[in-house]
Amino acid sequence: MRTTIVAAGTVLIGVGAVLLATMLTVPQLVGLGVWLACAVVLHDGVWVPLVTAASRGGGWARRALRRTAR
């Protein structure tokens, strides 16, 4: 069952790829590739580290507040 779903998923990705290849010109495909790569790089390399740092800061501030309140 799971194997069948993985196979079906692969086919559907293939449909998407064929649609892209037939509807977009090569420069457009390259541009899309750049967008896809940038999306991951910005999310994983900038956004999540910032959020992680912010939540660390928040946790530290919460603990500090609790200490001073005591």
Binding site: I5, V6, G9, T10, I13, G16
Partner: peptide, 11 residues
């Protein structure tokens, strides 16, 4: 087209 890619990779 990305909707198809998302559907497939999500499955």
């Amino acid at each position: 087209a990305l909707a198809w890619v998302i559907l497939g990779s999500l499955l």
